[in-house]
Nucleic acid binder design. Structure first.
Lengths: 127, 127
DNA sequence: TGTTGACTTAAACCGCGGTTTAAGTCGTAT
DNA sequence: ATACGACTTAAACCGCGGTTTAAGTCAACA
């Protein structure tokens, strides 16, 4: 049962300490323990929760939704269905967003191809 | 050579008119023509440019970068290399972002699977 | 003992990407 | 004539997601 300081937690996930403090203040990281001097102590459970929060953040879930999700975790098994529904809907939202990005990427790829052609043509003309 | 009003342009791309005005003010849509009454007229070229802007926005390119890109288009063929470099780098950034999302999605999928299992187990126990 | 470095807090500040508001100008159908 | 709907502008406003600042506390090491 090793505990991490905020500095170690920040280093492990490569995010600023200020972000972790911000997440705690916003209710994304409840129940963080403290040592006698008031410094945060992150248990392995808390590190796992932080990992989950970052995972949801990486997929653009709004802070308030993550907060709701974490609150449901604390509430226990009675919220299993709610959490399943939330994660399922979020997954679909992420897939939709990725589909839009993939589609838009095609337009970008066309530009890349056209630019390469035009640059090559210009070279040939001036030879 | 049909021209679109701002309302028609907004409808075609399913975005608010205010967003189009905002993009013009930010320099993303230069050279928009006007009728005698001062109303915007979108040529097919302008509609194509708007389409490009939306494509870049859909892939999370910052407004200022899009502005730079549009300025390079106006500058002509001397900026072909710059545009190619920008689009190539942007493509890579998009691919990186999608890779991160895909990875994070795995964590979400695991939660979905676990929740389904736990819900099923609870049903079996109470039977 | 005193200085350094890691931590603490609350509050102010920031950029981003729009959206809303308020007041006004047209063209057109009744 | 007038009323309506589509447009115009500048400026104010907004939520989001942090980041920065300032002032302070504490533990450990020289």
């Amino acid at each position: 049962m090793k505990y991490c300081s905020i500095g170690e937690a920040a280093a492990r996930f490569r995010i600023p300490e200020s972000t972790i403090r911000y997440y705690e203040k916003k209710g994304l990281l409840p129940l963080i323990e403290r040592d006698a001097a008031g410094r945060r102590l992150f248990s392995e459970d808390q590190m796992a929760l932080l990992s989950t929060v970052i995972c949801l953040k990486n997929t653009n879930m709004p802070i308030n939704d993550i907060k709701q999700y974490v609150a449901w975790i604390l509430e226990g098994d009675s919220t299993l269905e709610l959490r399943l529904k939330m994660m399922s809907e979020h997954k679909q939202a992420v897939l939709d967003e990725m589909a839009l990005m993939t589609e838009s990427l095609q337009g970008i790829d066309e530009k890349i191809t056209r630019y390469k052609t035009r640059i090559q043509e210009r070279k040939e003309v001036t030879q």
